[in-house]
Simulated scan of single mutants.
Amino acid sequence: MLALALFAPPACAGWQDIPDTITLQHIGDKMVVNGIPMTVRAFHTSMPAEQVVNLVQEAWDRNRDRTSVTRTSMPPWTVLNQTVGAQHRSFQIKASPNGGYEGFVALTSPALAREPKPLIRLPPGVTPVQIVDSVDNGRSSQQIVAVSKRSIDATGAALEASLKAAGWERHVMKKNARTLVFAANRQGREFDAILTAEKNGSMVMMNIADQPKQ
């Protein structure tokens, strides 16, 4: 499940047959998830979730040229999926902690998928499970979620050595009982990572981004 929580200006409601009563917001200018191009919009509504889901499902079912809509409950999310030609779209909604309901509408193009490539050389034993490339306001970034069977100390040391060999300069390394925070810079780019101790090793969440223009 893609979990995104970014704020952006409103987009035109009605995109992907979403009812006009729901205002959609852009998330990034361009996004590629695990090598698959994706366009995502976020929303918040005070309408009951069941009513919203039914409205979207009815709109998506209206055109017989499309495949049938699948509806799945994945608590706390309710999810709709449908294939439209060479593209696939999904709708997901859940209760918002601030009241009302929130969610996302996504359109993907599986036929245009390419092998995702990390922007940094990951050390042996650090395996990526998700790579998200995005461009927002002209600033490109890549988020990597990876796992390691080694401790956060061993994984952090291996990650630092790999980055240092590529010319990155560490400027933050902080550790507590369960997490390790690591940051580095190189030639106009920033690297940030949070390593979390897990039962069978470590989870590593990394972000590589262009530094903001002055």
Rank of each mutant, 00 (worst) to 15 (best):
Gly28Glu: 05
Ala157Gln: 15
Asn176Thr: 08
Leu122Thr: 07
Ile208Arg: 02
Val126Cys: 10
Met31Asp: 00
Glu102Asp: 03
Pro9Leu: 00
Pro124Cys: 05
Asn176His: 05
Ala158Gly: 07
Val40Tyr: 01
Leu80Trp: 08
Gln211Ile: 14
Arg178Ile: 06
Leu4Gly: 02
Leu55Arg: 11
Phe104Asp: 00
Ser46Trp: 10
Arg89His: 09
Ser109Ala: 08
Leu107Ser: 05
Ile18Phe: 01
Glu198Pro: 01
Gln25Glu: 09
Ser90Lys: 01
Ala161His: 07
Ile208Glu: 03
Gln187Ala: 14
Pro10Asp: 04
Ile36Val: 15
His26Tyr: 10
Ala111Val: 08
Thr21Leu: 02
Ile18Gly: 03
Pro48Glu: 08
Arg189Gly: 02
Leu159Ala: 07
Ser46Val: 13
Ser151Arg: 07
Trp15Arg: 14
Met173Trp: 14
Asn185Gln: 10
Asp192Lys: 12
Phe182Lys: 02
Ala3Cys: 03
Val172Arg: 11
Lys30Thr: 05
Glu169Thr: 15
Ala42Trp: 11
Val40Asp: 00
Pro212Val: 09
Ala111Phe: 13
His44Tyr: 11
Ala106Trp: 01
Thr78Gly: 03
Ile120Leu: 14
Gly156Trp: 06
Ile144Ser: 01
Pro75Arg: 15
Val147Gln: 12
Leu6Asn: 07
Lys94Thr: 09
Val132Ser: 03
Arg150Thr: 12
Arg170Asn: 03
Phe7His: 10
Asn185Ala: 12
Ala106Gly: 03
Ser109Glu: 13
Val204Lys: 01
Met31Thr: 08
Gln211His: 05
Leu163Ile: 13
Val69Pro: 09
Arg71Gly: 06
Pro48Lys: 01
Thr108Ile: 15
Leu4Trp: 12
Ala154Ile: 05
Ser141Cys: 05
Thr45Asp: 05
Ile27Lys: 00
Ser96Gln: 00
Gly100Arg: 00
Met206Thr: 05
Asn81Gly: 14
Leu163Gln: 04
Tyr101Val: 01
Asp133Ile: 10
Gln57Ser: 15
Thr127Ala: 11
Arg121Phe: 14
Ala13Asn: 10
Val32Asp: 01
Thr179His: 08
Pro118Phe: 14
Ser68Tyr: 02
Leu195Met: 12
Val84Tyr: 04
Pro110Ser: 07
Pro116Asp: 03
Val84Cys: 09
Ile208Tyr: 00
Leu80Ala: 09
Asn185His: 11
Leu24Gly: 02
Ala86Tyr: 07
Phe7Cys: 05
Cys12Gly: 07
Asn54Phe: 00
Ile152Gln: 05
Ile18Glu: 10
Gly138Glu: 11
Pro124Tyr: 13
Ala113Gly: 08
His88Gln: 14
Ser96Pro: 00
Val52Glu: 02
Asp17Ser: 15
